[in-house]
Amino acid sequence: MKAALHAEWTKLRTVRGCLWLLVGMAAVTVAASAAATSVSTCSSPGCGGDVTLLSLFGVEFGQALAAVLAVLVIGGEYGSGMIRATVAAVPRRGVVFAAKSVVVSGVVVAAGTVAVLGSLLAGRFVLPGRGFTAAHGHAPPSLADGPTLRAAAGSVLYLVLIALIGLGVAAVVRDSATGIGLVLGLLYLLPVIGGVVGDPGLRRVLATFAPTSAGLGVRATTDLAGLPLAPWAGLAVTAGWAAVALTVGGVLLKARDV
């Protein structure tokens, strides 16, 4: 396993595209978060709003790049035929898959931490100027605050889980472009459909079981009762999706010819 991990790590770090995707993920997250905070306003005391959620808004977009990266880690090997060399070098495919999962998780944790901390920092910088001041009942987001710390750590975990979903899907479809289309469709389709479903029950079901809307609740620090699921429970739903994707992907990787 150690050798397989080392091999996967070497593979990942020697392809420049991966580094760019990680940098892009952090940049997109911070930029989208900063954009969201700089268009929000709080004009009076009790204006509502969740400064942490607002500051971490960019995770909605950063997740796309985490998913793309993960899909490429597997899809790229199928595209180039390198998968054959990989399983020739490490014939136990479960180990290969596990090593890929670990390496992808590791780099996404690293880049996700940068993204989340950068977003919170941007929020601290921007929000007071938009009226989210102590006088209006808002403290700037701070990791010393328990719920904010949970939101930050949860967001990093969320990004990892989304990447793992991407990894599983890629192992199923064995093609980068198709994998990216499927994963991004999954990430964004259910929330969009949820917006047009009029039936409240059905809408709640969608919000509860969609990987994005359930998991992204981990960013909230106020008005938790309004979430479809409690923060950690929501993240558990996303983890469930990741587990299913990884299991199906792993089983198929073992069962099928490469």
């Binding site: 490429l72 990216i180 289309g181």
Partner: peptide
């Protein structure tokens, strides 16, 4: 000329 890059771009 690369599927992954192109799909990401059109997205």
């Amino acid at each position: 000329r690369r599927g992954a890059a192109a799909v990401t771009a059109v997205f």
